[in-house]
Amino acid sequence: MKLGLVFRIGTIMLLAVFLLQPDWFAFVFAPMTKNGQPAIYVQNSLLSLTISHLLIVFAATLAASAVAIGLAIAVTRPIGREFLPLSRTIANAGQTFPPVAVLALAVPVLGFGTEPTLLALFLYGLLPIFENALTGLTTVPPQVEEAARGMGMTDRERLWQVELPLALPLILAGVRISAVIAIATAAIGSTVAASTLGEAIIAGLINSNLAFVAQGALVISALAILIHDGIGALERRVGRHLIQG
């Protein structure tokens, strides 16, 4: 895993240097341009696009996590049990919806800009987190539940001290899936005028400037891989004791 660490730190450093000083890398992208096109996208700075991309993803994923976990808790309590089968079906079927469709359909409600992207990311992001949280909360080993009840934990104590901690790795996996999808969908959000790194790719496609396309794509990929990797590491950390001997 030493090698992995080198890769991770290397990727982060390279990304940081590229975002702060993109001109230093002009020589890499110049061969992809034609007829003296600029090699580096400057319409908006790549750094600010990255920041706004990440902010959108972060806000949407955070909101989706809070709501999805809340809903998963609600439908696994006696008071919401009645909605469990329905919500499970919706979460299942909902994930067959392409995120792009959700994005495009959010436009008439909210118009162009960042808002429809936020809404689409939020709505689509709910599903994997909800599904995983549901799985986590409903698959606590029966003996553990029995022991918790037998020792006199109240329903609330059981939720906070037993069910949620045991579901946490699965919930995090849901958050990871959501966040990675959100990064991809946010990029497409630039087609509805959200300020994200997709802007560089779209601009490149429109002007046939492959350098722009490559820049946007590389930064987005690096972000997705780093976030996937980071949350994955957190999952393993949280879940490392949960394998039963």
Binding site: Q143, E146, A147, A148, M151, G152, T154, I243
Partner: peptide, 30 residues
């Protein structure tokens, strides 16, 4: 019920230990 159970020890087949808690945290539950 929950207060009653805290006064009564309860051990079951397959132990039902909390996998996310250490041995001392498990014992310290009640």
């Amino acid at each position: 019920p929950h207060l009653l159970r805290r006064q009564i020890g309860y051990a079951i087949q397959g132990h039902g230990l909390f996998p996310h808690r250490t041995v001392s945290q498990n014992i310290a539950t009640v």
